[in-house]
Write a protein that binds this DNA or RNA. Structure first.
Length: 748
DNA sequence: GTAGGGTTAG
């Protein structure tokens, strides 16, 4: 095309600067123009023949036309040119035409609609808006196009502004306007204004007659959380289609009304509307939530039959469904069949595996994803982090923290909460706090996570301070907040404060569950206020096993055999042969020296084929997790070194005043055997291993049961012997052992 | 000429 211009010689001085665009015309030539349009064609073909060009692309023709700009005399001349420029998304050409129009004295209104359309299609919103504002009168399509552009680009505020301008300009919205503007209302939470516009849709009869308007309304009410309203709208729409019904299925599914989602899906089949991949994607999630694997499989079948099983979105939902139904193997089968999993698919896999307690596998898959160069998002990272925090994999978690930083997601609330959770569950409240302090947005969830981290680590005052901040920010506490606050009081021995909070929570908006009561029962029980704790349970409408068992374990702590036996009868009525209860009773009898009763309990348990789950501890060394079981002295390849180190540690501890606490042995045996059994507790083995391997920094132990009194006092002294912090996460809370004392202040 | 629905999370 440059050649042609050169041929034109001095004519290039007539060419506006914009024409120096080097973009290629994608299609079209003079012939096509001749066929399509009538106005400019004479001029174009005239010039073509003048230069003897055989076709050539549109842009070169256009340049020639501009050279002969005196031919721009009527709107007919440039109208087809403009259309061509729009088709080609060629913005410089559009601006040239506008300039020519102005030069020829045409008012902009004449082609305003087209120019706005052109600006929007070329993504030149500033230009489009300027032309729009200069127009005295606008066609409804122009209004709609501008609104639609803003919606499409998630600029809801501007969309609503234009819509309001439309109303104040006395232009009546039509089905196109309404079907897009509702999305902006839900996005901005403008419920009142949305209702007014809904009213307008009703008056115009569009709610019933136009399925686009109906779907937009359904979607909007769903996003406002008003599924009931959404359903009412749907019922009124005359001709229901797949999008309309899917919008409702999605709505129910996202609001956790899973049974309703499945019901809406069924109604779709009954009405003979064919579901598509969007529908399947949502209804499968609800099946997963309901753990309704039979209906899930039925839908899987339907998908295969209708060929929608190959779309990535629906495959991801299938994967999620199988994982939520705990069918790990089936889900792995699905995953294997997916050719190009995207980050959502991978995230679904990682989070689902964590959900099923398959953390190791989850992290392996996460690493595979990284090897495949699929970029993780904040969802992926928070799932992987949860895997680490479940197993207290500190080093692994720190590696993922590195990835979080690499992708600049450290200020993101999802990834951030994952990190807070990780550090909290690894006993590093200060690291959790520094992550929390860098978050760009503090919300209820990140606050809850931080409060919970403090709570489980026994930093009650810090937790309560944050709770106060939450209140000052005007954020609404939820059930997790309440639990975290109560736990904070519980783990820090702040019993009076805990009771006060509980009273105020009772009057608050959050519906208290058995978990909240269990926390209070534990708090009162451990403080020895057993009667108060029992009274509290009696206030609960449906007291469950956990509540009674919590009180029973308080009886064990305070060796209240009489109350314990009464509770035991009560519990065994609700749950005959409850394992936890029998173990607690057996331990209580043991600690009070009632060995005959212990033997009775043990034979009861044997009769019911119940076995105590073994005490286990884990410790991570060089990113490898080592498992230790109480009494198992030989499985570990380094048993010899471990026992040697352990012996040394026990000796040094004894020098500093450690003595075995034999009340922790729940078996009737010789005194020396009791001592031996204490020495073989899993946390002692794990610590000895970590000491032998000379772990740098703090030693972190994870334990499946509660730390016993003997181990607790031993670890305290060992922390002084080795001059190292030992952090132990047991089944209930954290213990930070440092220089001879523990963060729990011996209250746990 | 302009319009409506999804899958991963603490």
């Amino acid at each position: 095309m440059g050649l042609l211009l050169k041929k034109g010689g001095n004519a290039s001085s007539n060419t506006p600067a914009e024409l120096n665009d080097s973009g290629d015309g994608r299609r079209n030539n003079a012939t096509a123009m001749r066929r399509d349009y009538s106005g400019g064609l004479i001029v174009v073909s005239g010039i073509s023949s003048l230069f003897g060009s055989k076709g050539g692309n549109f842009r070169s023709q256009f340049r020639l036309l501009c050279i002969a700009s005196n031919s721009f005399t009527t709107t007919h001349t440039f109208s087809p040119l403009l259309r061509q420029c729009i088709d080609e998304r060629w913005f410089p050409g559009i601006k040239t035409i506008q300039a020519q129009m102005l030069k020829s004295g045409f008012p902009i209104q004449l082609s305003g609609s087209k120019l706005v359309d052109a600006g929007l299609k070329c993504g030149e919103i500033g230009y489009a808006r300027k032309v729009f504002d200069e127009m005295r009168e606008r066609h409804i399509v122009t209004w709609n196009s501008l609104i639609a552009y803003f919606i499409k680009h998630r600029r809801s505020k501007e969309a609503v502004e234009v819509y309001r301008l439309m109303i104040t300009s006395n232009v009546s919205p039509d089905e196109y306007t309404l079907s897009s503007v509702f999305k902006a209302f839900s996005d901005l939470g403008l419920e009142k204004e949305a209702q007014r516009s809904h009213g307008l849709a009703v008056v115009l009869g569009l709610e019933v007659s136009n399925v686009f308007v109906g779907s937009a309304l359904v979607d909007m009410y769903v996003k406002f959380g008003k599924t009931r309203e959404a359903k009412l709208v749907l019922d009124r729409v005359e001709e229901k289609d797949v999008v309309l019904i899917t919008a409702l299925v999605v709505g129910y599914s996202q609001k956790g009304e899973d049974a309703e989602a499945v019901k809406a899906f069924r109604s779709m089949l009954v009405e003979g509307v064919q579901p598509n991949e969007y529908t399947y994607a949502s209804v499968l999630i609800s099946c997963g939530n309901l753990k309704d694997i039979s209906y899930g499989k039925l839908i899987h079948g339907l998908m295969i039959k209708s060929g929608f099983d190959s779309a990535l979105g629906s495959q991801t939902s299938l994967l999620t469904m199988y994982l939520r139904c705990c069918l790990v193997d089936d889900s792995l089968c699905i995953f294997k069949c997916i050719e190009y999993p995207n980050e959502v698919t991978w995230t679904s896999l990682v989070s689902g595996l964590v959900l099923n307690g398959r953390e190791e596998m989850a992290l392996t898959e996460f690493r595979k994803m990284m090897c495949d160069s699929v970029k993780p998002n904040s969802f992926t990272l928070s799932s992987a982090l949860r895997g680490c925090s479940n197993l207290a994999m500190f080093e692994e978690g720190r590696q993922i923290h590195g990835i979080v930083l690499k992708y600049g997601l450290d200020r993101d609330k999802y990834a951030g909460s994952g990190l807070i959770d990780l550090y909290g569950k690894c006993g590093c409240s200060d690291m959790a706090r520094s992550v929390f302090d860098t978050l760009s947005e503090v919300d209820v969830i990140s606050l809850n996570t931080m409060i919970y981290s403090y709570a489980q680590n026994g930093f009650g005052h810090e937790a309560l301070e944050l709770f106060e901040r939450m209140m000052n920010l005007g954020l609404q506490a939820n059930d997790v907040t309440v639990l975290s606050v109560l736990l904070a009081c519980n783990n820090s021995g702040l019993v009076d404060e805990g009771c006060e909070f509980f009273e105020s929570f009772r009057k608050g908006k959050v519906v208290l569950t058995n978990d909240h009561y269990a926390c209070m029962v534990d708090m009162l029980g451990r403080a020895g206020r057993l009667d108060e704790a029992e009274m509290l349970i009696n206030e609960v409408v449906n007291p469950d096993l956990v509540l009674w068992r919590t009180l029973l374990s308080a009886c064990k702590i305070h060796r209240n055999v009489e109350m314990a036996e009464r509770l035991k009868r009560k519990i065994l009525e609700i749950a005959p042969g409850d394992e936890g209860t029998l173990i607690l009773m057996s331990n209580l009898y043991a600690s009070t020296g009632k060995w005959n009763r212990v033997i009775e309990m043990k034979s009861d348990m044997r009769g019911m084929k119940l076995k105590k789950s073994p005490a286990m501890s884990w410790v991570e060394v060089d990113r490898e997790t080592h498992t230790f079981m109480a009494g198992d002295l030989f499985s570990h390849p380094n048993s010899e070194q471990i026992l040697e180190t352990l012996e040394e540690l026990i000796k040094k501890a004894k020098d500093l005043g450690y003595a075995e606490d034999k009340s922790c042995v729940f078996q009737d045996m010789e005194e020396s055997a009791k001592e031996r059994s204490l020495h073989q507790h899993s946390e002692k083995l794990a610590i000895a291993f970590a000491v032998w391997r000379n772990v740098g920094g703090s030693i972190r132990i994870l334990k499946n049961l509660r730390v016993c009194v003997d181990c607790h006092s031993w670890i305290k002294i060992v922390s002084r012997v080795i001059k190292r912090e030992i952090i132990c996460r047991d089944s209930k809370r954290f213990h930070h052992f440092r220089d001879g004392s523990c963060s729990c202040r011996d209250y746990w």
